[in-house]
Amino acid sequence: MNPARETIRLDTEFLHEPNTRLDRLGVSAPVARAVLPDGSPGWFVTGYAEAKALLADPRLRHNSPVPRQDEAGDGGPKLPEGLVSSMITMDPPQHTRLRKLVNKAFTTRTVAALRPRIRQVADELLDAIPVPGQVDLLTAFASPLPITVICELLGVPAEDRADFRRWSLSVTSAFSARTITDAHALLGYLADLVAHKRAHPTGDPLSDLVHVSDGDDQLTGAELTSMAALLLVAGHESTVNLIGNGMLALLKHPDQFEVLRRDPSLIPDAVEEFLRVASPAHITTTRFAAEAIRVGDVEIPAGESVMVSLLGANHDPERFAEPHRLDVTRAAAGHLAFGHGIHHCLGAPLARLEGEIAFRGLLGKFHSVELAEQPRWRDTMMMHGLESLLVQLS
């Protein structure tokens, strides 16, 4: 079949069992027509080479160059502007300006300095898990670890962190009326927090971000609120899914579990393999062709929407042999779990550090970990994560 003529329907079955659908495409249709759950059309990219090229192509932009039917507006509920118009959905030069300012506050040194505190949080969470017994690793460990870290980075009090987790889950899950309510609650809270940091800086990275400048340029209040929301969601959702998805992959490949137990020095490489085989993000934000773009045998017309499957690219057999097989000794570097190009995930170093510490703790703490029930995938287009991960520990 001509790849340009094949249509992929991104429905509930696809979200819950994406590998089954991706296998049907294989290398025969790395760029294919797609229909989103809301019925809107677009192009779906699953090939590694095609995805990497398009993610770095300046002709693929977040702002549509031509009017689209879905922009007419149907009067229905929409996410607030502070979540819709963030750095992740901006094109140069706006994106370039924001990224430059944020990079001044969130440096490699800032992330590296967090290692002792992350290790302390991980140890405390693991010590609180009763053994033997059953536990949901998402609620007991995978979620509170990164939410604690990112909330400390933002200077959020401990008593507010449960609300932050709920708001984050809501705005990254299937759209509903509750999503709108939680999005406004999140942005309102962050706007107040930013105002407080401006008046009373406390030395945390959010305070640094509030006061960072490049010459006479500083982030506005609205930009800071939007950036804080992005850091909250991206700064912990990726790690929750990395830990949950990676642990599920290990439980389904017990031989690889034992390889890591015998040689913990492989854990940093294993984290890269978890990111590849069970990417914490599935589909990128929608982008648009500013002009006609030829990708392999397909030409994407100007103005049409494009979605890139990071999970699909990381499972391309042309790039990774036996892509569905977990191999913690694999050279998985070069995967696209954190995207590629100017929108490469700002929180990637933090997620990697948290993942490494998390798996060292999990493998060192428990003698036996077994899957207690088959988990379900969350109903969300962008993220790729579990609703829960119930395990039996001993």
Rank of each mutant, 00 (worst) to 15 (best):
P3Q: 03
E6D: 10
D11H: 03
R21V: 15
L22S: 11
D23I: 10
R24N: 12
V27W: 09
A32G: 08
A32F: 13
A32H: 09
D38L: 01
V45K: 01
R61F: 00
N63G: 15
V66I: 11
G75P: 06
G75A: 12
P77R: 07
S86G: 15
D91E: 11
H95W: 07
L101I: 13
N103R: 12
A105K: 07
F106Y: 14
R109A: 12
T110K: 00
A112N: 09
A112F: 06
A112E: 13
A112Y: 03
R115V: 14
I118W: 06
L125A: 02
L125F: 04
P130G: 03
G133H: 03
Q134W: 02
F141L: 05
S143T: 06
T148N: 04
V149P: 05
C151N: 06
L153P: 08
R161Y: 08
A162N: 14
S168A: 15
S173V: 11
A174N: 11
A174T: 14
Y189F: 13
Y189L: 09
V194R: 04
A195V: 06
R198A: 02
L209K: 05
V210C: 12
H211S: 11
L219P: 08
G221K: 06
G221A: 09
L230C: 05
L232T: 07
N241S: 05
N241Q: 00
N241W: 03
I243H: 00
N245Y: 01
A249Q: 07
P254C: 12
F257H: 15
D269Y: 02
E272G: 09
E273T: 13
S279C: 14
H282E: 13
H282K: 14
R287W: 15
E291A: 04
I293W: 10
G296P: 02
V298I: 03
E299K: 01
S309W: 10
G312D: 06
D316C: 01
R319A: 04
R330C: 03
A331R: 13
A332Y: 07
G334C: 00
H335T: 01
A337N: 10
G339K: 01
G341V: 09
I342W: 08
C345N: 08
R352G: 06
L363A: 11
F366E: 08
W377N: 11
L389I: 05
L389Y: 05
V391E: 06
